[in-house]
């Protein structure tokens, strides 16, 4: 959380600098972070695809885990941020938290999709199936659907003055569901089937492999923070655009009144 705050707070300084106004949503802080992310990702891919050895059990399929695991972590963090921001929306009632909640949910969806896709591609050679009704998979899939619903709700409520509040409530409800879904799917799976997930535990993670995984995790988190900053700014700009349109609408509405100022004399003389 703290890293996000500093990222956002650092931004205005660079915008206020006497340089011409920025073309897009970038600021010095976000650019540095973006470069770091790209470098780390490049290094991570290099390690993941080339330098790290194939796993003893899983052969090259283990390379998928360097994407799969970090994206899962980022997705959960992103949804956690959405839930936290949703609570803050109801408490502080500020636009900022609402936009953070929305931005983080969207990024969470992207990373969840990556996580599920790589998980399936890993599962096919290792388990023999793309999908198994394992507790963690089921929870993650439901999580994806829950937050897709959340984003759909945001779209449906565009322009509604209560959007922030209603979406915050929906976000909190989606989040309440997660532990319950997790518990239920865990029980459900233990009752129905067993062993499928054991393979991962047996294989020893070596030094290079662990390092690859770590790099990708850091890259993933940096990428998340970067995307959150940019996505937040895009949402912020979209709100400003609406506001400008709104100011114009007010002016237009008032000119309507000016035009009709002549009319009341007729109406009132009629009335008297």
């Amino acid at each position: 959380m703290t890293s996000i705050d500093t990222g956002l707070r650092a931004a205005p300084k660079t915008v206020d600098a006497p340089t011409p106004a920025p073309i897009g949503t970038g600021s010095r802080g976000s650019r540095i972070l973006g470069v770091i992310t790209l470098a780390l990702t490049g290094l991570g891919v290099l390690y993941g695809l080339v330098i790290s050895p194939p796993d003893a059990n899983q052969s090259n399929a283990a390379r998928l885990l360097y994407i799969h695991v970090p994206s899962a972590i980022v997705a959960y963090v992103a949804f956690g941020v959405t839930a936290f921001a949703s609570i803050m929306v109801l408490w502080k009632k500020t636009e900022t938290w609402d936009l953070i909640a929305a931005s983080s949910a969207e990024i969470g969806i992207v990373f969840t999709m990556v996580c599920l896709a790589t998980g399936m591609l890993w599962g096919r050679p290792i388990w023999g199936v793309f999908w198994t009704w394992d507790a963690r998979l089921t929870t993650t899939a439901l999580l994806l659907v829950l937050f897709v619903g959340y984003v759909a709700l945001r779209r449906a409520l565009a322009g509604n003055p209560n959007r922030a509040k209603w979406c915050a409530i929906a976000g909190i409800f989606a989040a309440i569901d997660v532990p319950i879904v997790h518990e239920s799917t865990t029980w459900w799976v233990t009752l129905h089937q067993g062993q499928t997930v054991r393979l991962l535990g047996e294989s020893q993670i070596g030094g290079t492999m662990l390092f690859s995984l770590l790099i990708m995790m850091v890259a993933g988190m940096c990428g998340y923070v970067w995307m959150l900053i940019i996505r937040f700014r895009v949402a912020f700009l979209a709100e400003r655009v609406d506001e400008t349109a709104f100011d114009a609408a007010i002016a237009e509405r008032r000119s309507e009144a000016e035009k009709s100022r002549a009319v009341p004399t007729i109406a009132t003389s009629e009335a008297q």
Binding site: P264, E270, A271
Partner: peptide, 26 residues
């Protein structure tokens, strides 16, 4: 229905374009 309502009202407030444009004591 101005005929009916003016007989009823103490004041007539005109509104146009979302602002009050006139206010007459009957």
């Amino acid at each position: 229905d101005l005929d009916r309502s003016t007989a009823l009202a103490d004041r007539i407030v005109s509104i146009a374009g979302g602002v009050v444009t006139d206010d007459v004591d009957v």
